[in-house]
């Protein structure tokens, strides 16, 4: 690349876009559509996987204690639990806490605790143990089961398994769909750029007769492809951000237990993929499609 020509290449790259406004617009619009589809799937997938992850981590191991367990024994168990591998958080539920929770859950509809007080009731003391990951569940449950002073260790492993498989399935599905959309986006972008190059095959032909080197002809097209790709990706990103913002604000009140990924976090992840796809496809599209017209 001759250094003195860089200015010409960049200028011609932009001129190419301005001289062929309709063609460039068509290219940018199809890039926006392709990348917007891609971005939507990415953002959707991220949220689904996030929701399932939330559900997973809310699954807890509950350790019910016998009423006759001594305070010292409880203290020892407490220490051990906190040092156990794979445990994120340990919460002690006293009889009073349990009583409060019961009341909160069933309120006046239940007369099961009629006549009991917060200090004196049949509800057991317990530990609520939150795991770092569901895969630690087996170890934790096995370590605690049958220990002295422990009445029962409860963990819903079936739900955990199902969620676990769901997460894996969703991630794979997401990857596959993103992969397919990525290919579609690249093909659409490359095709559009190819049409733009085809429309200008005479120009390329004339340049060849005048004695332009192949790279001299190529560079403006490549820059043009990159600029169109970049423009398309920025616009599709803006569109995606707007619609995601809107969707989150509308859906948050309806699906109040769903924790949406904040718009900026979602965009950061989508941005990288979208921009790289847009620019790379634009560049490759123009570089590849120009090749056959250079053989004069």
């Amino acid at each position: 690349m001759m250094l003195s020509n860089i200015g010409y290449y960049i200028k011609e790259g932009f001129n190419g876009i301005l001289r062929h406004k309709a063609m460039s617009m068509a290219a940018i619009i199809s890039i926006i559509i392709a990348l917007f589809m891609l971005g939507s799937i990415i953002v959707f997938g991220l949220n689904v996987s996030n929701v399932i992850g939330d559900m997973e981590s809310s699954l807890e191991v509950i350790v019910f204690l016998k009423d006759d367990m001594s305070d010292q024994a409880i203290e020892r168990l407490d220490g051990e639990l906190r040092n156990m591998e794979g445990i994120a958080d340990v919460r002690y539920i006293s009889k009073a806490d349990a009583f409060g929770k019961w009341k909160e859950q069933f309120g006046d509809q239940s007369d099961y605790l009629e006549g009991y007080t917060a200090e004196d009731n049949p509800l057991p003391r317990s530990y609520e143990v939150r795991l770092k990951e569901p895969s630690y569940a087996d170890d934790v449950v096995n370590a605690l089961n049958g220990r002295e002073g422990i009445e029962k260790v409860q963990y819903n492993s079936e739900v955990a398994d199902t969620l676990n498989r769901l997460v894996t399935a969703v991630r794979w599905m997401g990857l596959i769909i993103v992969g397919i959309l990525l290919v579609i986006a690249v093909v659409i972008i490359m095709n559009t750029v190819r049409l733009a190059v085809f429309a200008r095959r005479n120009e390329i032909n004339i340049m060849k007769y005048i004695g332009a080197t192949n790279w001299f002809i190529r560079w403006p097209f490549i820059i043009e492809g990159a600029v169109i790709g970049l423009t398309g990706s920025i616009l599709s990103l803006a569109l995606l951000k707007m619609l995601y913002d809107f969707a989150v604000s509308k859906l948050s009140s309806i699906l109040n237990m769903v924790n949406f990924i904040p718009v900026n976090d979602a965009m950061n992840i989508a941005m990288l993929i979208i921009m790289v796809t847009g620019i790379v496809a634009g560049i490759i599209g123009s570089a590849v499609s120009i090749r056959r017209y250079l053989k004069v």
């Binding site: 032909n205 004339i206 007769y209 005048i210 001299f216």
Partner: peptide
């Protein structure tokens, strides 16, 4: 192949169908 562009600069060409760039 690589030398062709430089070689062609020694020859000016005029065609029957002109071949000007219509957008310039």
């Amino acid at each position: 192949r690589k030398e062709i562009p430089y070689f062609r600069r020694n020859i000016g060409v005029v065609f029957q169908d002109f071949r000007l760039l219509p957008d310039r």
